[in-house]
Amino acid sequence: MRHREQTDATNGDRTDGVHLLPKAASFGDRPLRGLDFASQDCLGLSTHPEIVATAADTLRRFGVRSVCAAAEAGDPGLSVALERRIADFLQMEEALLCATGRAAARTVVRGLVRSTDHVVIDAAIRSGLRESAEAATAHLHPFRHLDAEHCRARLRAIRARDTENGILVVTESLSPLDSGTPDLAALRTLCDEYGATLLVDVTQDLGCLGEDGRGHLGLQDMLGKADLVTGSFTKSFASNGGFVAARTRAVTACLRAAEADAQALSPIQIAVLLKAFTLIDEADGCERRARLMRNVLNLRTALRERALTVCGEPCTSVSVAIGSGELARLAAPRLIELGLLVDLTASGEASRLRMHVTAEHSDADIARAALGVAEALDRARADLAERSRRPNLLVAA
C-alpha cells in the first residue's frame, strides 16, 4: 500500500535530528552551519551502534584496504555472502557487486548492449545510466518521463523495422527529479510483448520505502519480475557501493567474466552492508522507515500549508517546484543565511529544491525547514522583483 498524505501529531518531538556542518566548511566567506536536509542517510544507519561496531571489528581483522577485486577483499566469503543477500532481498537469482552505482550501470549496459541493439530509456533517467547507454549504442530512444504509452510507441516503431536486435528498456523505480514512480507492471507487459529486456534502477528507494524496505518493486508486487536491477547503497545502507542483480545466473556470469579485474568493495564496506541488510530487515529497520515516512508526510504537509508546490509521491526526497532557474540561484544564498542545507537544481523553468529527509529529523526540524524554505523563496522573489525594477544602462557608442 502506498503512503497517503497525512500528518501524525501523536509522537513527541525528537531532539537528535539536527545536523551541523563543521565550522571549517564555508559558503563564500561565511561559515556553513545549518539544519541538514542535504545529506543522504535516510535511515540514520551510518551512526548505528551495531554498524559502527561491525566496521571496527572488520578493521581489526583485515586492516585498512582500498576497494579491490572481490577475490582480494580479505575474506572472499564476505563478498559472496553479500551478493547472495542482495539477490535474496530482491528475489533475483544472482547479484554482482560493483564499486559504485555508476559502475553498476556501466557494467550492465556495456556488458549486454551491442552497437546494433536499442536502448529505450526514460527521458529523466539519472546521468550514469544515460551516459552508459550513449556509449554502448547510437540507437537511443528516450520516452517521456514515466509515460508507459510513449514507451509502447517507441517499442512498436523499433520492432516495425528491426525484429532481430535486442532492446533494453531502462527506468528508475523512483525518480530523483520529481519523486515520481513508473507503472512497472505496465513496462513488464510491454517488454514481454515486444521482446525487450527490462532494467530497473532502485537507488532511490531500496531499503527505505515500503514496510519491508523493498521500495516500489515491493509496493508494486514486482520483486523478481524485472530482468535486471541496478542500484547504489549510499542512500540507506551506510556505505558506498553498487550492484547488478539478474533473474538468470547466465547474465551475471557474463558480466563477471567481462569485469574480472574491476574494483569491488573493501572488507569494511562489505561487512557494513551485510549488517545494514540485517538491520533493515529487523524491527529496528521497520521502525526507522515508519519514522522516516512520518517525517516525509509532515514536511510535505507543512510546505503545502505555506502555498508551496510539492512534487511526486511521498518518498525520502521531498521535491519543491520553484520555477525559474534565476529564482533558484537567488534562493541558494538565502537558504544558507537561514541555516538550511538543501539541494537545488536550476534549469530553465523547471527548477527544483530537494530536501533529503531522515528518520533522525525531529518535528521541530520539520517545522523549521518548511518555514525556512518559504522565507528563503519569499526573499528570493523580492530580490528578483528588485532586479526587474532596475533601469537598464545604455552604453554610449
Results as ranks from 00 to 15, higher is better:
R2K: 13
T10C: 07
G12S: 12
L20F: 11
K23H: 12
A24E: 14
S26E: 12
D29S: 15
L35V: 06
D36P: 02
D36C: 03
F37G: 05
S39T: 15
C42H: 12
C42F: 07
G44C: 09
E50L: 11
I51S: 04
A55M: 08
L59Q: 10
R61G: 08
V64W: 08
S66I: 14
C68T: 13
A70Q: 10
G74N: 03
D75P: 06
R85Q: 15
I86L: 12
F89S: 08
E94G: 10
C98T: 14
A99R: 15
R102P: 07
V108W: 01
T116W: 08
D122R: 07
A123H: 08
S132F: 01
T137S: 15
A138T: 12
H141R: 14
P142S: 09
R144T: 11
L146E: 10
C151A: 15
R152A: 10
R152Y: 01
A153I: 04
L155Q: 01
A157G: 13
I158F: 05
R159L: 05
E172D: 13
G180S: 13
T181G: 06
D183F: 10
L187H: 07
D192G: 13
Y194L: 05
G195T: 06
T197E: 07
L198H: 05
V200F: 00
L206Y: 02
G210P: 06
E211T: 14
G215H: 05
L217G: 05
Q220K: 10
D221M: 08
L223R: 11
G224L: 04
G224S: 09
F243T: 05
V251T: 12
V251E: 01
C254I: 09
A257S: 13
A258H: 12
I270E: 00
K275C: 06
I280T: 11
A283H: 14
E287L: 12
A290T: 09
M293E: 05
N295D: 04
N298A: 14
L299A: 03
R306I: 00
C311S: 13
T316V: 12
A321K: 13
A321C: 03
I322H: 01
G325Q: 09
E326Q: 13
L330E: 00
A332R: 15
R334W: 02
I336Y: 05
L338S: 08
L340R: 05
L341I: 11
L341C: 11
D343W: 07
L344G: 07
L344V: 13
L344S: 06
R352G: 00
L353R: 03
L353Y: 01
T358N: 09
E360K: 12
S362F: 02
D365G: 07
I366Q: 01
G372R: 04
R379C: 08
R379N: 09
A382F: 04
D383K: 08
R389A: 13
L394H: 13
